[in-house]
Design a protein around this nucleic acid. Structure first.
Lengths: 352, 352
DNA sequence: TTGTAAGCGTTATCAA
DNA sequence: TTGATAACGCTTACAA
């Protein structure tokens, strides 16, 4: 348009219009334009319309860097995680990005080392410098209260994802791991299994503790007495699943079914069984947790607990940034998610 | 320290020191401090030391938002991708983050939809608004020249990852897919296979074309004539691997070996074979490509081509941001990476 | 309801 | 080799 040329009176083509350009063309002050951008309520609707029209004509978009400087706050959402499971991390990213779609927010990923003594200082430096709009905390690091307090202290919003009630509702999106595992274990019992082993997650993981609790509740409810060594510890990796399975299968009597606290370890169990010439589910039933891609892709397809990680991440992100446009949607978005058993081919009754 | 208290004369505790604080305490102008930060060469070394000492005492860190505004450039690296393989994406992120470790850069992830007509406009808006320091382009979208030109046009540095010579060396990190597949196929031939099928990647993927070319070269070199329908198309997903395998195994005569252009599809082939009661490798040999986690985790462990994706991503990121500290390291970092065959248990000689 | 002036914390220009 | 001054594009007082 001719008007536009007049506006960018000087210099280079393709110079992006600024708030000043909009103000001049609309015949208002930049503060007024700023008010339009930030949806201030104290605005003559006539003025607003005029400004909005100019904004549209110019294709003006506020500069995020300048806003960040003035507001002392970036439009970046951080994902802080220390999760041993790749697929989980990626699913979380997907969920967050779905929520951020169409907003001005971008996602910055920040893996940390839970075991490093410098971890907290790292995060502090990160938050301090980047002045993120907010962060999402993924398990297991989301279970760390010191970290959550640090966010608070630095004035950074946060939402934790977890498998138990770790925090106030406004800071938490949770799932019911305990009940889900109880259901899964009961399913094994119902199939006739009595020799059921557990491969639990690493010490210090709340999810590991919750899943173990669910397992024990089901076993107890069934009136089964399990030998102590029927509970093996893994660290959520495939390899640890193999090792734990080998330990369990060397026992006398060996279990006829194994519940692994995540799919990767369950895949390790299937792998170990194959190595020993045992076939799943004929000789050994296996259940995992997460329903990540590998669960459906290995043979036999894995019975597992579907953990709705993508919707959880989406919900967490929405909680952080507020609903885009529609206010009701964010409110409607639940922050408690139910996991449920997905029955596939890795479970069968035990051989007589 | 007492000095520090004197500096932040007013107001709130924990107010972060700014360049002005440093300047005042060091008795120089802020421009001089700025020069120290940016390693300007025109600086009296005495002045520099004094400033550096104050910086250290204060624990001063430049505000990235302010720098971004002044420089019209963020310290953000974007990862633009549209990759159907989750593990690949995550590995790339890992490689990039390794390279960015200890620098001031952060990683922003940006998945796009290759098939959307709005894709280019999306990217344009993204780059324009965020003014990223640079972006990394992952295959298959990295093969899109229009996209690369767009980056150029918008003054955004970019590095492409690819399986062929797509661009100038400064914009490219590449691998030798064609030769690697030739080697893998020749391995099947050497094992005695003659009925070898290919599941290729989707049309329009350079990697798919390269891998197919390598396959055909090896087949031709072996003097084998393959029926046309021994080449099936997949789209790099697990499900497409199952479908393609079923089509191939319905053929008369069916292949005794299948090369799938990535691991996910190869896992699908193994899955399909199991569903049909065929056992791998006794009845069917399978080779994949990527050496992602699933390759080692399924049963039998998959013979595959190891694509050094993590080092490639690290190298690409280094190319973008330059070497942190040590100048030689970045130069030494190669930008051409060799894939090689990883022999596991999914290949055996064909049954007589 | 709108505008003016003063930042936000950095870098670029250009003179000293 | 340094420094004053003006950007960078936006927001927050505080007035009008």
């Amino acid at each position: 348009m001719a008007e536009q040329d007049k506006a960018s009176s000087t210099a280079k083509r393709a110079a992006k219009p600024t708030i000043n350009d909009v103000a001049r063309l609309a015949g208002v002050s930049k503060k007024t334009v700023s008010r339009v951008i930030n949806r201030s309520t104290l605005l003559n609707s006539e003025t607003r319309e005029r400004v909005e029209q100019v904004i549209a004509e110019l294709g003006y978009v506020p500069n995020p860097q300048a806003r960040a400087l003035a507001l002392r706050r970036n439009f970046l959402i951080g994902l802080i995680h220390d999760n041993p499971n790749a697929q989980t991390v990626l699913n979380v990213q997907q969920g967050i990005l779905e929520a951020l779609q169409g907003t001005e927010f971008e996602l910055v990923v920040r893996p940390v080392d839970r075991r490093s003594p410098l971890m907290l200082e790292d995060v502090r430096a990160f938050l301090n410098r980047q002045r993120l709009f907010g962060v999402l905390l993924l398990p297991p690091i989301s279970e760390n209260d010191v970290l959550a307090n640090l966010c608070d202290e630095l004035g950074c919003r946060y939402v934790r994802m977890g498998s138990a009630q770790l925090d106030d509702p406004e800071h938490l999106v949770a799932s019911n791991d305990r009940e889900a595992v109880r259901e899964a274990t009961t399913y094994l019992v119902d199939q006739g299994h009595r020799l059921i082993a557990l491969i639990e997650g690493p010490r210090g993981f709340r999810s590991a503790a919750e899943r173990r609790a669910g397992f024990e509740q089901a076993i107890e409810a069934a009136g089964i007495e399990l030998p102590r060594n029927y509970i093996a510890e893994g660290n959520y990796t495939f390899e640890s699943g193999i090792e734990a399975a080998n330990r369990l299968l060397d026992l006398g009597p060996p279990p006829t079914a194994i519940f692994a606290s995540n799919d990767e370890m369950a895949a390790g169990v299937v792998h170990a069984a194959n190595q020993r010439g045992l076939s799943v589910p004929e000789n050994l039933s296996v259940i995992g947790f997460d329903d990540t891609a590998i669960a459906a892709h290995i043979w036999p397809p894995l019975t597992t607990v579907r953990w709705p990680i993508i919707p959880m991440a989406r919900s967490a992100a929405l909680k952080l940034v507020g609903s885009p446009g529609d206010r009701t949607k964010a409110a409607a978005e639940p922050s408690f998610f139910l996991s449920s058993l997905v029955r596939r081919a890795s479970v069968a009754p035990p051989r007589q």
